[in-house]
Amino acid sequence: MSTGLVFACAGALLFAMGVAGVVLLEHLLRRILAFNLMGSGAFLVLVGLAQRFGIADPVPQAMVLTGIVVAVAATALALALARRLFALTGGYTLSEDGDD
């Protein structure tokens, strides 16, 4: 098992944890963090799999870089919305009404 594959497996694990976090947690901040965990997991898989054979491939690295930018933007938006929600309702959880 090469290092790349180890990275990839770890990434998959992180990703799974992240998804579980986003879906199951209630606190908004934790959910946002979990989303970041999820993203990092995916990036790890991307880079890890590409490095399986020991040669560094610049393409996935560039992709990850783009992905990180996107994730940062998303996180910023989520945080801004969460703050707004806090200002409006005083809580960091989504109420479940209107949900089925």
Binding site: L46, G48, L49, G67
Partner: peptide, 9 residues
């Protein structure tokens, strides 16, 4: 994205 990563891999 994870799917994309696997495909690329």
């Amino acid at each position: 994205l994870l799917g994309v990563a696997l495909i690329h891999g």
